[in-house]
């Protein structure tokens, strides 16, 4: 097995080397640039933490579902509709009240977007991966249509809403030169801590984890497996919606058609790397945030941003080869 793992890593490194080299940048230079882009300056740190924030919250969302045995590929769609809901409310209710109400609306919207996949999984046995992918597409199309239609900012050509009033945003905690850190990051940390406590301390968390590990045994143990499955999906959707609200109130200050660069897979990666321990969502979100920021920095050197997808995919595959192996069959 260890030899096989070495093969996998060598093959992955070779692939990265090849795609980077094809762009004309020597791979060692690219690696150096990525690292310094993510951690080499206050600006780099600012961007890394900014990229990590949605991954922290979405990671907690996908982690929750994963514990219940669900692949919530739909976190992306839930994030997008959450963002739209937050922007809509924030545009109508200004001030801190708007932030609070908008966040609640985002959680509700995220939950609503998870309802159908959760219900189909729990009561119809339809695989959540397919249904959440479908909901992502519908969510992307619907929000784009709204942002380009009734919600479009006056005089704007692009599909985007007007900007929120400055009073309806989340302030920075630290603002030191080029370095900034928004409250959203701490809210993300709280989301992870709450998730961790939920699983280690509460009866509901116990039942959720039991359902995810062995739903049949859970049934015999008096757990309402269908309700637990649906509830896990709804909560996961609400947390993804929260991520959308934070993105609106802390970063974008509006909703637009390119709201998510495709966080769905990143969030799945963050949750997988956490390996069943909610606390590990924090370092793995930071890692993925750094990768996103590093590849962003690289794109200035002419290495396309696609590198991020390649790296994420490889990190997840190598990690999964170590951790998410199926038990070998006997005989």
């Amino acid at each position: 097995m260890n030899l096989k793992l070495v093969w996998l890593i060598v093959a992955g490194a070779g692939l990265v080397w090849a795609v980077v080299a094809s762009t004309g940048t020597p791979p060692p230079d690219a690696l150096r640039e990525m690292f310094s882009g993510a951690f080499g300056s206050p600006q780099g740190w600012r961007e890394t933490l900014k990229e990590s924030t949605p991954l922290l919250v979405l990671g907690a969302s996908v982690f929750l579902a994963l514990k219940a045995g669900l692949f919530n590929i739909g976190a992306d769609g839930q994030f997008v509709v959450g963002g739209l809901a937050a922007a809509v409310v924030g545009l109508r209710v200004t001030g801190p009240g708007g932030v609070v109400l908008g966040t609640l609306a985002a959680c509700l919207a995220g939950s609503a977007w998870a309802l159908l996949p959760g219900w189909i999984k729990a009561y119809r046995g339809g695989h959540e991966v397919i249904t959440t992918i479908m909901m992502n597409n519908v969510g992307r199309l619907a929000t784009t249509a709204l942002a380009a239609g009734v919600l479009r900012a006056p005089g704007q050509q692009n599909a985007e809403t007007p900007l929120l009033d400055a009073s309806t945003t989340l302030p920075n905690v630290v603002q030191d030169g080029a370095f900034r850190l928004n409250w959203a990051f701490f809210i993300g940390l709280v989301a992870v801590v709450v998730t961790a406590l939920f699983f280690s301390r509460t009866v509901a968390g116990f039942e959720t984890a039991a359902t995810g590990s062995n739903s049949r045994a859970s049934l015999f143990a008096g757990i309402d497996v269908r309700r637990t499955t649906l509830a896990a999906m709804l909560v996961s959707g609400a947390v993804a919606g929260l991520a959308g609200a934070l993105q609106v109130f802390a970063v974008k200050h509006q909703f637009n058609a390119d709201f998510s660069p495709g966080y769905g897979f990143d969030a799945l990666g963050v949750a997988l790397l956490a390996a069943g321990q909610a606390w590990f969502v924090i370092p793995s979100a930071l890692l993925f945030g750094a990768l996103a920021r590093g590849t962003s920095a690289l794109s200035i050197m002419g290495v396309p941003k696609g590198l991020n997808g390649v790296l994420l995919g490889l990190v997840v595959l190598v990690f999964a080869a170590v951790r998410y192996r199926k038990e070998a069959a006997n005989g």
Partner: peptide, 21 residues
Amino acid sequence: FRIDHVISGMGLNAIAAGATS
């Protein structure tokens, strides 16, 4: 490698999307 089928499929998709781009 006996990696979960959904995880490995999603991983390949991410690599394919990034690498082809």
